[in-house]
Design a protein around this nucleic acid. Structure first.
Lengths: 154, 154
DNA sequence: TTACCTGCAAACTATTTGCAGTACT
DNA sequence: AGTACTGCAAATAGTTTGCAGGTAA
């Protein structure tokens, strides 16, 4: 996932800001601290990781507020949540980074991203056959990477 | 998913039985009660649902044993577990019913199954590109069905 | 000023674990 | 007979909720 330039970040920040305004929600510093931390990271993280990262920077935002803010960021499509099979949800920023799926090594939990247009085609076909309006999908492939230093290597 | 004939069921039951024997695990009545209930149902259920179904038939098996037995049934490929985004896992029987994916209505939670060979092709390509040995995948499509009586219809 | 928001801790939900007694093999 | 298994209840993990202040608008 690419890193954003400062001015792009400013634009994305205002997407969040506008969303809050439109919904008559408050622009609290905590919400923007969560936003900043999310958009400073370019990986997949869980809610607690985000909480810890903030704490490490001596930014004190409660866990409850982290969850609340992630929820809002998901509502305005700046964050997506994934359920990779473990019990805790993983999040990632998603501004202009819609369609991609995940490949996960079950030995070292490394996550790779891929994108294949055939998935879109399958989606359209399934949509037609079942007469569904499909809004999104979730595809993960699991297996074993072949890195030499992968722990518990298969 | 098809229902099984009594003699097929007997064969599948012996797959479980043989598995337990090979692993030096005990053939307890509780384990077979769980097996029977799983193979009597042709839908997607969670652990608690199975527990309740057994209870309704006055078959008393503890929740802990339900989880334990489902784990064993997964080990011998008679059951698969799915994480559909909600926090509780869904299970379904999987004897000779390997490759299929799921389409889920977010309004009524109805689950449909589909199968598309292109997914296999994508899997092979991803496997090659990332040098992974892919063991399995998990694909769900989410959306809105168009049934008239779908609650909270979109 | 006035709700909405935050932080805290308690509640909750799904699942796992520890332990004493039970029952396969 | 011996040890794995069961049921129960308590522990755990991730997330949500209730409530008493705090604060954006």
């Amino acid at each position: 996932m690419p890193q954003f330039l400062p001015e792009q970040l400013e634009d994305i920040r205002s997407v969040f800001s506008d969303f809050l305004k439109k919904k008559n929600l408050r622009q609290t510093p905590e919400r923007f601290k969560v936003f900043d931390e999310v958009y400073a990271s370019d990986d997949h993280f869980d809610a607690d990781e985000l909480f810890v990262r903030l704490k490490a920077k001596e930014i004190n935002v409660s866990r409850a507020t982290v969850y609340n803010s992630l929820e809002l960021l998901m509502e305005c499509n700046l964050v997506v949540r994934h359920q990779f099979g473990n019990k805790q949800a993983k999040y990632e920023r998603s501004f202009r980074y819609w369609q991609h799926d995940h490949l996960i090594c079950e030995d070292c939990n490394e996550i790779h991203e891929f994108c294949d247009p055939r998935i879109q085609a399958i989606q359209e076909m399934v949509s037609e056959i079942f007469e569904f309006e499909i809004t999104h999908h979730s595809l993960q492939m699991f297996g074993h990477c072949r890195r030499d230093n992968c722990p518990n290597r298969h």
